[in-house]
Amino acid sequence: MTLDMNTTALLITDPQRDVLASDGALADLLHAQVAQRQVVAKLRKLRDAAAAAGLPILYSTLIQRDEHHAAPPSNAPIYQLLRQRGAMREGAGGAIVEALAPTPSTVLATPRAGMLAFGTTDLDQLLRARGIRTLIMGGMVLNLCVEANVRAAVDHGYEVVLVSDATATTSDEAHAGTLATLSLIAQRIVETSELLAELNSSAAA
């Protein structure tokens, strides 16, 4: 599969402090893997290369607002954990990390309250308005929000290129297992270096 740069966008899921920073609310679960895979640096390189190649860049974020915290306990352990730790709160741990701060051309989809962006935010409309058919996807957390939105994107008719080392989860085993499952769903699973070469070649053309 060769990327058509006219119909491809970069989608970064949850480039936020609580899942990426060393002092984030979920750092004890995630940061060793985030650091090992150099996720922030790779997402920054992908974002810059995509911008140079003229691709739209979209962020999808998860924000827990006061009204969410006032709701009854969630039916999912991950949501219970977010509430217990006060994680992904607007203007706090839900803030985007400085290295990935939005540029004037970054498109921010309406924030999610849960894992799924398709059907719950304006993401699909933003993509279709730009004629996008292929999504390059990375971000956090691989076997939660990223996986949920890879599956949803495919069911909404998009082809997905998943960047395997520009995302992380809690362990090497969980990472490998999720990629094995998503290999049946994503059109391509690539490493950052391979995709950067493709984007840089397009930008230079």
Rank of each mutant, 00 (worst) to 15 (best):
T167K: 10
A99G: 09
A41S: 04
G54H: 02
D18A: 11
L108Q: 02
A113Y: 01
P111G: 06
V163H: 02
A95C: 12
A52V: 04
A205V: 09
G54W: 01
Q33R: 10
L43Y: 01
L195E: 04
I12W: 01
V141L: 13
H69C: 13
A204G: 12
K42E: 02
Q38M: 02
A176T: 14
Y59A: 02
R151F: 05
A21S: 11
T106C: 02
A35D: 06
L26G: 00
T121E: 05
S171T: 08
I78S: 13
A101Y: 00
K45H: 04
Y79D: 15
L26H: 03
A32P: 01
T169G: 02
N143Q: 08
V19L: 09
T110N: 06
L29I: 00
P111K: 03
L179P: 08
A152K: 12
A35L: 07
A52R: 12
S60P: 10
P73E: 14
P15T: 04
Q38T: 03
H68V: 13
A153K: 11
A50Q: 06
A25P: 02
Q84A: 15
D66N: 15
S164T: 06
L162F: 12
T192E: 11
G24H: 12
L100F: 02
M88Y: 07
L26D: 09
T120Y: 06
V150Q: 14
T61K: 10
E98N: 07
A197L: 09
A32R: 03
N149P: 11
A9F: 07
R37F: 08
S60A: 15
A21G: 04
P102V: 01
H68I: 13
A152E: 13
G131L: 07
D18V: 06
C145R: 08
Q36Y: 00
G177W: 13
L3D: 00
R188D: 13
A52Y: 01
L43N: 00
L196M: 14
I136Q: 06
A9N: 10
A76H: 15
A50W: 04
L81E: 10
L182V: 11
V163N: 05
N143L: 14
L127C: 13
E173N: 10
A92L: 09
A32M: 03
A50N: 12
P102G: 01
E173Q: 14
